[in-house]
Design a protein around this nucleic acid. Sequence first.
DNA 1: GTCATTCGTTCGCCTTGACGAACACCGTCC
DNA 2: GGACGGTGTTCGTCAAGGCGAACGAATGAC
Lengths: 189, 189
Amino acid sequence: MAQAGSTSKPPMNSIAATLRRGRQAAGLSLTELAHRAGIAKSTLSQLEAGQGNPSLETLWALCTALELPFSRLLDPPRPRVQVIRADEGQAVASAQADYRATLLSACPPGARRDLYRIDAEPGTPHTSAPHAPGVVEHVLLTAGRALVGPADDPVELSPGDYAAYPGDQAHVFEAREPATQAILASEYL
Amino acid sequence: MAQAGSTSKPPMNSIAATLRRGRQAAGLSLTELAHRAGIAKSTLSQLEAGQGNPSLETLWALCTALELPFSRLLDPPRPRVQVIRADEGQAVASAQADYRATLLSACPPGARRDLYRIDAEPGTPHTSAPHAPGVVEHVLLTAGRALVGPADDPVELSPGDYAAYPGDQAHVFEAREPATQAILASEYL
DNA sequence: GTCATTCGTTCGCCTTGACGAACACCGTCC
DNA sequence: GGACGGTGTTCGTCAAGGCGAACGAATGAC
């Protein structure tokens, strides 16, 4: 299975580590896991050694046997409690002074979802250019009132209201009352 | 590459569809994408036909060439605006009357992250049994005050405070003031 | 019309992933 | 001691994945 010159190579070491940790966390031996997944334990041994270039079937069988989502194959980090107080956190740059987004949780390598806290004041609407394809934004208004959603079809939200919309097209956030606050989850699967 | 009797087989059709849509969305031809990814166009053709059992290298090369996160290989759905008003949404069952979780956004197939709105009153702490390995919970307190986090090491949050902690061990949510509200993102990569 | 260029598919060959047996290793029991 | 049952590793064999050339179809230039 020769492979021509490609750009970057898959993170086998990362996957290998994930598999090994997953197996040990489940308290399984190589033999046992290989049996459950229906693959040869030699194959599994090589994979955990970071060698080779596994096929989709093999990876899938291992994921289901370990009850791991397929997407969890890449990434090690195991966090402990992390707290960001109300007045902390790095604000995201914005040309407008009446709109402030605070990054709460950036995606670890293998990107999936960012959490922001939005603080906005009435004024000119804050419009965002389309993001990468597949991005979905979730907004939950916690205080005030705002017009949120696709630029061509926004929705007015009151406290407690929730809205989700495609982020890969132009969209707006326009505060309608002073001290408007919201949670924004930007999901770029 | 024979495969012994395993449980479920990988969703090749889904991956095939994702690849084809991704390629067409990028406006690339089979030849062009194959060249960029450094694979043979015949291989790509077969993959988009849902045939075969691609190797990790092949899939990775395609993902990087299409600028798709590896985890986005499974799932099509493209949403429009979705709104859940403050008094809407299905409440999640809970034995305790003073703790209510409202599901805002469930993961589409290929699961990754759920969004909840929490409404809680002071009383007995709401403890959760450990979830699947790898789960991370994010909490952003929007009103009131609460003790949140791992059962053995919780943190007190005030409005605007944010905390993230592993969800695969016992954890608590204990309201300290009436009408306590929070956003909870359960992330199971 | 013909040539040229692109598209996506199909075919034969070669490489390589996956299998299974054999292997070395370690602890336990008799 | 040595015979077990368990671990994870290495090796030879076979089938399947990936490659590249050849293919038919569709389009545009001249």
